[in-house]
Structures are given as C-alpha cells and as structure tokens.
C-alpha cells in the first residue's frame, strides 16, 4: 500500500520478470502515454540522488545490453532496483513536484521502540511535465 512496486535486479526471477516486462509489446505501446514508468536506483549506500536514473530509451538500451535482455539475470548481481515511478505526483503552486523528508528514530532494538519526527518538503524549482525530455524536469 505504501510501496511502489519494485524489482530487485540481484534476485534472479525478479530481474527476469523486469526484462520480460520492458521488452514486451504492451510496455512499449504504453510508453506513448506514460513515457517514464520506472526509476532505477542503487539499493544500498546511495545518497543525494547519486546512482539514480529514469528509465528512458537510452537507459533501457543500456540495461538491455548490460543484462543481455535478461539472460544475465542471476549472473550480474549488481545491487540495482527498478521502482515504479510515481507518474501523477501532487504538485505545488508552480506546478512543481516535491517530496517529504521525515525522521524515524529507532530508539531501541531490544525491545523495538520507534519515534517519528516532522521534517520538511523539498520543492522542485521547475515545472513538472512528464513528457519532457529534460531530466531536470521529470526527475
């Protein structure tokens, strides 16, 4: 319910499912109305959007060649994930995107004691247009 559907590249069947999906005719046809459907991330140790990219035509070609259209799933165990891209974000006053940063304190693990702390919103400085070719607009 809170988690965008995601494929882990280092889990063989999830990786294979992902390459089947992005090479299907259905997916290719759906790009007409939803040009960006996945966001690719390094699953550990990435900060400040390092190693994060949107699955456009170039990146699709790059991943297809890196994983040989899914043949190398289970061989190449890079810690990548493909997360479903939120295509219909709520927008702010400049028709811009935003995200929330909140803080979670795991105050104890024996037993589990967990706290919430308010954070802030990071508002994008450009207008959102999902058909834009400019990565600064759609990121």
């Amino acid at each position: 319910m809170f988690f965008p559907y995601a494929y882990r590249f280092y889990v063989k069947n999830e990786c294979s499912d992902f390459f089947k999906k992005i090479n299907s005719n259905e997916y290719k046809a759906s790009l007409q109305t939803e040009p960006i459907q996945y966001i690719i991330k390094i699953s550990h140790g990435s900060h400040s959007a390092e190693g994060v990219f949107l699955l456009d035509a170039n990146q699709t070609e790059f991943l297809n060649s890196k994983y040989n259209f899914g043949e190398k799933c289970g061989v190449d165990n890079s810690s990548l994930i493909a997360q479903t891209y939120i295509t219909n974000p709520l927008l702010l006053d400049l028709d811009n995107k935003f995200d929330f940063r909140i803080y979670m304190l795991v105050a104890s693990t024996n037993p589990l004691i967990v706290y919430y702390h308010d954070g802030f919103l990071r508002a994008s400085l450009s207008e959102y247009d999902k058909f834009s070719q400019d990565v600064r607009v759609i990121f």
Binding site: F2, P4, Q83, P89, D99, Y103, L105, N110, G119
Partner: peptide, 20 residues
C-alpha cells in the same frame, strides 16, 4: 543500539502516500 533514519515519501494527486 539505536539509529536515526531519514525517510522520503511522495504524495500522488489522489493523496496516496508512497514510500520512496
């Protein structure tokens, strides 16, 4: 043992909250 985490979320235009 304790740990502080920064969690990122987004809202879609139907006000569903998504963990990023």
């Amino acid at each position: 043992v304790y740990g502080l985490f920064g969690l990122d979320f987004m809202l879609d235009d139907k006000f569903n909250l998504w963990f990023i």
